[in-house]
């Protein structure tokens, strides 16, 4: 069984939601990213999302744009990201790891070569921000054959018909974008997210993660009460950016933030 499915099965039995922290790979360097991933897992992260830096991150706000620029300046690439995943798996065989990024680096590598390398590295899911379900007919079967989950984004503007299609084509979970905007926006509306999740659940049986705009333990708790997973990215990447000069402090603060988010997520009373 794919690690993501196993994770949600276990969490369902325990009656709690998953915390899914995101970091941009190679920001500020591969070793630090690897260390931060392990720290976040120890702090309670259930699934980790590793961002593949891209030169033109059109769906990302300033925080992750700058993280991409720092990572690329330091030489990070899709291959380098896969190498971080591979090293993560050397000491962690349980925590699901999802790659999140844009399509072009995957196409440049070649989708077959990418899927083979991702499998070998121990990647469990792939989310390409600019790969709509309609355009996914090459990559999805290749991912499926390798038991890697293709994960799709659902937006506030997505039609019911398309959510159904994503539910059929996607695996692992659907990622609900909590607002109209880019990553890191600060305008989370918990009530509208909650009613939207109810609607999505009537269209698919996949677990539903919610991200974009979740920054604090309070947000995480509110979202965890209605969703199956809570994704936090920019709020963690900001810590990485602010403490680039002091790795020990960076790791400590990321760990503390992840622990606070995990406690809030895991402690939420769920319907």
């Amino acid at each position: 069984m794919n690690r993501i499915d196993a994770c949600f099965e276990r969490l369902k039995a325990e009656g709690r939601a998953a915390l899914v922290p995101y970091l941009t790979a190679g920001d500020p360097d591969a070793d630090t990213t690897l260390e931060l991933l392990h720290q976040m897992v120890e702090a309670g992260a259930d699934i980790v999302e590793l961002g593949v830096p891209f030169s033109d991150p059109m769906a990302d706000g300033p925080t992750i744009q700058l993280a991409c620029e720092r990572a690329l300046d330091a030489g990070m690439s899709l291959r380098g990201t896969l190498d971080i995943a591979r090293r993560f798996r050397m000491t962690n065989s349980d925590t699901p790891l999802v790659l999140m990024g844009y399509l072009n680096p995957v196409e440049a590598m070649g989708s077959a070569a990418f899927v083979a390398a991702a499998k070998e590295a121990g990647v469990d899911g792939v989310l390409s921000v600019d790969l709509a379900v309609e355009e996914a007919d090459t990559l999805v079967p290749e991912l499926e054959a390798a038991d890697i989950a293709p994960i799709f984004l659902v937006a506030p503007t997505t039609s019911d018909a398309r959510i159904r299609k994503m539910g059929e084509v996607g695996r692992g979970y659907l990622y609900y974008v909590s607002l109209k905007g880019v990553t890191g926006s600060a305008q989370l509306d918990v009530d509208s997210v909650s009613s939207r999740i109810t609607a999505i659940r009537s269209l698919t049986g996949l677990p539903i993660a919610v991200g974009f705009g979740i920054r604090t333990p309070e947000h995480a708790a509110a979202i965890a009460a209605v969703a199956d997973a809570v994704v936090v990215g920019s709020a963690l990447v900001e810590i990485v950016a602010e403490h680039a000069e002091d790795r020990a402090r960076m790791c400590q603060l990321v760990r503390e933030r992840a622990a606070a988010l995990a406690d809030a997520t895991h402690g939420a009373a769920r319907a």
């Binding site: 059109m58 399509l103 709509a132 355009e135 799709f152 937006a155 503007t157 997505t158 974008v177 905007g181």
Partner: peptide, 8 residues
């Protein structure tokens, strides 16, 4: 090939 929000 765009962010999902723009598909609709």
């Amino acid at each position: 090939f765009v962010a999902e929000t723009l598909m609709g």
